[in-house]
Design a protein around this nucleic acid. Structure first.
Lengths: 117, 117
DNA sequence: ATAATATATGAACAGATGTTCATATATTAT
DNA sequence: ATAATATATGAACATCTGTTCATATATTAT
């Protein structure tokens, strides 16, 4: 009788907990959001993005600037592209990569602001 | 002689590549930034943050809303706190968690905007 | 067609990550 | 002091992640 929902005896915020439970968006939305942020959660990808903020570039440009193998760069570009962070266009033997939209730089900048506060 | 720096024969963007190399911030900065974004790169942590946007909460509140064990919640809160995403205050037996600053919500919202475009 | 170049891709591996379980610490009530 | 409660923490484990290596594909030049 009147078994509490939290902390075994008394809920700390019973009405708030109920409200939050009801208003909670679907798991899928959090999943999608986490996958977006995952793209920013690696120093190599951040470096690549920060380069693409300045100019569209091909694999070999990026590999050269970052002192990385072409393969490693290509894999990361592939991941970024599959997640709609960047897009590409072919020009002869080269494939040029660039940002997919401006939100990407907004998110990046918001992060920069935080760490340099 | 005149050995190219990129693509074995001709750099695609030789002057740009040199410029980018010189202006590249230190690895540590990208490392720090990636660690910030890592905090947002997990659905559970995003859920916790979205709850804390609304109200300061204790472990048991969060565990109840998310149907998670207290231990799992506590571990995530600990990670978030070590990374200065959230702070806490004790009130008797309870420890209340809340956001450390407003940048956090800015980053979160920038992400939400992107995925709902 | 053949060779050279630019990029992509699959498999494998090491290292990181999130949860669970068991246990410890801290606060409060008895 | 003892018991009960809220939270923290260490170890273990399975899963995920990023790079490397080897190889494949696509484009261009010969």
């Amino acid at each position: 009788m009147n078994k509490s929902l939290c902390c075994d005896v008394v809920e700390v915020h019973p009405q708030i907990v109920e409200k939050l439970k009801k208003e909670m968006p679907e798991h899928q939305q959090y999943q999608n959001l986490s996958e977006l942020f995952k793209m920013f959660a690696d120093p190599t990808r951040l470096k690549i993005l920060s380069l693409l903020f300045q100019k569209e570039l091909c694999v070999c440009d990026i590999a050269e600037v970052l002192h990385m193998t072409h393969s490693a760069v290509s894999h990361q570009l592939s991941v970024l592209r599959q997640n709609r962070i960047i897009k590409n266009r072919r020009e002869g033997k080269n494939i040029f990569y660039s940002l997919d939209d401006e939100h990407i730089q907004m998110i990046y900048n918001a992060g920069i602001e935080h760490i340099s506060e």
